[in-house]
């Protein structure tokens, strides 16, 4: 029933993943990584894993990104790759 959404979001996820590791700016990585988590959360929801989706939403999209930004704030945005 929901497989088209599933497939589309999976593709997004892969895009986000590739982008997150290839952006040459760590803050950008942090933000893209947040987007990646959004997608993942959707994916879990599509697959009926509500609890996992909830956790991913709270952890991946929220806290994880904040930690990430905090760490980048305390280190540097510079990256060679």
């Amino acid at each position: 029933m929901s497989w088209p959404i599933d497939l589309v979001i999976l593709t997004f996820v892969i895009f986000c993943a590739i982008a997150a590791i290839s952006v040459r700016d760590l803050l950008g990585t942090a933000i893209l990584f947040g987007a990646y988590s959004f997608m993942m959360c959707l994916l879990w929801a599509v697959m009926g894993a509500v609890d996992v989706a909830f956790t991913e939403a709270s952890v991946g999209a929220g806290v994880s990104t904040v930690f990430f930004v905090a760490a980048v704030f305390r280190t540097s945005r510079r990256t060679k790759d």
Partner: peptide, 8 residues
């Protein structure tokens, strides 16, 4: 090469 990238 970047440690944070590795973490991601």
């Amino acid at each position: 090469n970047n440690l944070i990238k590795k973490l991601v």
